[in-house]
Simulated scan of single mutants.
Amino acid sequence: MVGPGRPQIVLFGSSIVQYSFSDNGWGSTLANIYSRTADIILRGYAGWNSRFALKVLDKVFPKNAVIQPSLVIVYFGGNDSMNPHPSGHGPHVPLTEFIDNMRKIGEHLLSLSDKTRVIFLTPPPMNERQIERVFGDAMSGRSNELCRPYVEALLNLCREINVKGIDLWTAIQQEDDWLNICFTDGIHFTAKASEIVVKEILKAVREADWKPSLYWKSLPVEFPFDFDVPNSISLCDLNLTRNKQLESQPGTARL
């Protein structure tokens, strides 16, 4: 491996995760923010549901690994909540099975080490008209009505198994004109939606009672910024302020 060793933050999920490093996505933004403090590792699989995730869980997160992740951020549910296909095939997973799968995923990740933390992201809302325009009948089984019960059940599970849950369903809908500015195709995120996701993740990590803290400002910076070489601008100050737009302002609800 490349050294020195850093905390590992793994993003695990379906296309919302796989595409998170493109077009100013939330994964690439996290990698930028944690660039001197932790490694952001991508394990995203477009089209997958929680049933598929269980099949590879031991391979992606083996319990005998020498180094275990410090944080795993998990997203499944959007594909699971699609209407069952008449053929019996397709990504749909019944709600009760989805919650059972997510419980098993959460419990497995928490068992990796006593320092491994877990965050579940809920499915976000979607722009149904945009989906129809972009995909036609290919995505006709998606709707906010079908998805919402999966959001509510997942948040209840998070409280039950003591996993942090981030309610993207609500966070995105708090944005003005969210239907028109948050999706590239009705499902996947624009840069604006990814910004919301990053703010919610940073807020959750900052407020978590985790020891050690995994908030980016609390982690040790790898190597000195300048090795005492004089600079016209402080590289340390520059690093602390370059993501200022993601910091909370007094009186705001989100980080």
Rank of each mutant, 00 (worst) to 15 (best):
L95A: 07
R43Y: 07
H108C: 10
V221H: 06
H188C: 06
A193E: 07
I196F: 01
N49A: 03
F135Y: 15
D237P: 03
S248H: 12
G90F: 02
L255V: 10
P125S: 05
M126K: 06
N32Y: 11
N32K: 13
L57Y: 09
P69N: 05
S143N: 11
P220E: 12
H89A: 15
G88P: 03
N180K: 13
L11P: 00
I105F: 00
D185Y: 09
Y215W: 10
G251S: 08
L255W: 13
Q249I: 13
G5E: 15
F21A: 04
E145F: 15
I105A: 01
R142L: 10
N144L: 10
N243L: 06
T122N: 00
T184N: 03
W26M: 04
Y34G: 03
K104I: 06
P91L: 08
T241Q: 10
Q18G: 02
K203Y: 12
L168C: 04
F120T: 07
L235D: 08
P220I: 12
F183P: 00
V198D: 02
L110G: 02
D167A: 06
N180Q: 13
G47C: 04
F227C: 09
K203H: 15
K217C: 08
R51D: 13
E247K: 00
M102R: 01
I172N: 01
P125W: 06
K63R: 11
Y34F: 14
S20E: 04
L57E: 00
T29F: 01
I161C: 02
Q130F: 05
R242M: 12
V72K: 02
S143P: 07
M82L: 13
Q173A: 02
L255R: 14
S234V: 07
Y19E: 07
M102C: 08
N127P: 02
R36W: 03
A253P: 01
V17W: 02
V118A: 05
L95R: 10
G27Y: 05
D226L: 08
F120Y: 13
P230Y: 11
S35K: 12
A204M: 10
S81Y: 04
